[in-house]
């Protein structure tokens, strides 16, 4: 390929119904670019979990996806409440989601560990009261 592709999305924090739209678009782009089903699935699950988190735990934010010859990088940035204890949040089953979110089918505390599982690199930079940036990378080949 040689060139670097960049995709930018604004993720609306007000609208649960539209959450995940960016991930759907990215999955479609990756399919058009001819990526394997495995890569497509890993990227889209990781990004979708992150997108949902931005909508249900923060007030939305931005998603930036970069595709180069070596890796796909996903950066999810929000100005939400931040995560006080990142290692606690990374534990399976840890969730601060309320019943309202559970009734929508989320809030099992599986998202962050799942994002880690499906990516080759994941970093969470979070500051309480300022926001959270999640960076994930998936290696190609």
């Amino acid at each position: 390929m040689g060139e670097v592709l960049k995709f930018h999305f604004d993720v609306d924090g007000e609208n649960f119904s539209s959450a995940g739209e960016a991930s759907v678009v990215v999955k479609k782009k990756l399919r058009q670019l001819g990526f394997s089903p495995d890569i497509m699935r890993r990227v889209s699950i990781a990004m979708y979990e992150g997108e949902i988190n931005m909508v249900i735990h923060a007030d939305g934010g931005t998603a930036d996806v970069t595709v180069d010859d070596n890796e796909i990088t996903i950066v999810l940035k929000d100005r939400g409440p931040g995560i006080p204890d990142v290692s606690l949040a990374m534990q399976e089953g840890y969730s601060t989601a309320c019943d309202n979110i559970r009734s929508l089918g989320f809030g099992a505390g599986m998202g962050l560990p799942n994002m880690k599982k499906y990516t080759d690199f994941m970093q969470i930079d979070s500051e309480v009261g300022v926001g959270t940036t999640v960076t994930m990378k998936i290696k190609l080949n």
């Binding site: 649960f16 959450a19 979990e49 989320f106 809030g107």
Partner: peptide, 29 residues
């Protein structure tokens, strides 16, 4: 949907009583 995203491997069919657009997006992912 959290559990579908975390535990499903190659299952092609989802049986659910949940109604919202995320059901379709989760299935698609």
């Amino acid at each position: 949907m959290s559990d579908v995203l975390a535990y499903v491997k190659d299952q092609g069919v989802l049986i659910t009583g949940l109604i919202n657009p995320q059901v379709i997006r989760t299935a698609s992912m």
